[in-house]
Amino acid sequence: MGTQLPFGDELRAELGEPEGSLRLSSSPRSRVWRVELPASTVVVKQLVDGPDADERYAREVAALRLAARAGTPVVPALLASDPGERVLVLEHLEHQRPAGDWIVDYAAALARLHATARPDDVGVLPRWQGPNQADVESFLWLAGALEVPVTPAVSGELDDLVARLDRAPGDANEGVASFVERRTPKYLGR
C-alpha cells in the first residue's frame, strides 16, 4: 500500500470522482486524506500493513457501524469502505473549539454511544487487546523524555495494572451489552 490516495473504482462508482485531496498527518498505523468529492468533503483513512492491520480494520468498521445507531451522532458517519485496501470513507467534520462545559457534552455523547450496545452485539467487535509490557516501557520512556518525574513505584503499579487487565474476562462490548440489558428500562425509559 503506497502513499497515493486509495480510492478505487467501487468507491468512485458509489461516491463520485475525487476532485482533489490533501494528505493529513496521522498515526504510523494509518494514512489519512481530506478529499473533495462532487457532493461533499470526506475523510479517507487507510489502515497500513502490519501484523494486526486486518483486525484493526475490522474493529474500526464494526465500531463505527455500532456507533451509527445513536440517535444523535457520536462519531463521523461511515460513508463507504473498501476492505481489500482497508479503506474507510468518513464524513468530514469541521473543527470547532469546544464549549467551556465540553465535559457535559462529552459525557452525554459517551452515554449515547454505550446505549447503542445490545445483548446480541456480543462478539461483534474483535476482542480488545489491552496494554502490554511494551506499552509500559514506552510510557516510562516518554515520561523520561519529557522530564516528568516518575517514582520507583510507578513501574510496579503499571506492571500490576497490565496483569489485571490481561486477566479480565470477556470484552468491552460484552460488558456494555450486559449493562445495557440490565439498566436500559431504568435509565432510558424502556
Rank of each mutant, 00 (worst) to 15 (best):
G2C: 09
Q4D: 14
P6Q: 08
F7Q: 04
D9N: 12
E10Q: 10
E10A: 11
L11E: 10
R12K: 05
R12Q: 10
A13S: 10
E14K: 12
E19F: 02
G20K: 13
S21W: 04
S21Y: 02
L24E: 14
S25K: 09
S25A: 14
S25L: 09
S26P: 05
W33G: 08
L37H: 05
T41Y: 04
T41G: 13
T41A: 15
V43P: 09
V44R: 11
V48A: 04
G50T: 00
G50P: 00
D54V: 07
E55Q: 10
R56E: 06
R56I: 00
Y57A: 04
A58R: 15
A58T: 13
V61D: 04
V61A: 14
A63F: 06
L64R: 09
R65K: 12
R69Y: 04
R69V: 02
A70C: 06
P73R: 07
V74P: 07
V74C: 04
A77T: 15
L78F: 03
L78P: 10
L78I: 03
L79M: 11
L79P: 09
L79E: 12
D82V: 04
D82P: 06
D82G: 11
G84T: 15
E85G: 11
E85D: 14
V87K: 06
V87H: 01
V87N: 08
L88I: 01
V89G: 03
V89Y: 01
L90Y: 00
L93S: 01
L93R: 07
E94Q: 01
H95M: 03
P98K: 00
A99I: 00
D101S: 01
A107G: 04
A107T: 00
A108K: 09
A109T: 03
L110T: 05
R112M: 03
L113N: 09
A117L: 15
D120Y: 01
D121H: 12
D121Y: 09
V122L: 08
W128L: 15
Q129F: 06
P131K: 07
Q133I: 12
V136D: 12
W141L: 15
L142P: 03
A143E: 01
G144R: 06
A145L: 13
P149R: 08
P149A: 13
P152F: 00
A153W: 05
A153V: 10
V154L: 12
S155H: 13
G156F: 00
G156S: 03
D159F: 00
D160S: 07
D160Y: 10
V162L: 04
R164P: 00
D166P: 05
A168R: 08
G170I: 07
A172H: 05
N173Q: 02
E174G: 12
A177C: 03
V180R: 08
V180H: 02
R182W: 08
R183F: 12
T184L: 09
T184R: 14
P185R: 14
K186Y: 14
L188K: 05
R190A: 15
